[in-house]
Write a protein that binds this DNA or RNA. Structure first.
Lengths: 76, 76
DNA sequence: ATGTGACTCAAAGTCCGTG
DNA sequence: ACACGGACTTTGAGTCACA
């Protein structure tokens, strides 16, 4: 599953994942719930939150919409 | 290259692409220059700006760094 | 300097399961 | 409720020739 990422890239993905998890928990949602709302696979979403997946733009936007937040809130 | 995207998704990609092109032009850079700076292929970058490519997180961050802007500036 | 189609192949993403 | 894996299918990454 793990491709060869530079340490910086790993950090980038982890940062995004933590931010996503935070926003999700603020809403009191489980990964399962967010997966359902956004139409993403549960196990995949978990991987994103753990910083193991390089999620693409359209899915980032899907998540932002499900969380009812602006996409830029996922980048802080 | 065109996968079956909903009109909304096309709009999303186009919006991102236009925003990216704007930030690039503000710096007076050609696509070629930004491609060089970011390490992405010129034709690929062009495709992103035209909203034809669903760019993933790590490449979004590469572009933001090359443009010396915060990633969230790409989402407005 | 950019738009575009066609291409390869690695990775995005799904779906099944386990502890 | 979540981490993690295996086996899959689909799409993004990256490149090229040409307009």
């Amino acid at each position: 599953m793990e491709t060869t990422l530079t340490p910086e890239q790993k950090t980038d993905l982890q940062k995004f994942g933590r931010r996503l998890a935070l926003l999700r928990k603020e809403r009191g949602w489980s990964q399962e719930r967010l997966a359902l709302e956004s139409g993403l696979a549960r196990s995949y979403l978990g991987g994103v939150e753990r910083g193991q997946r390089n999620i693409a733009l359209l899915n980032i936007l899907r998540l932002a919409r499900s969380l009812e937040c602006e996409p830029n809130e996922l980048f802080s």
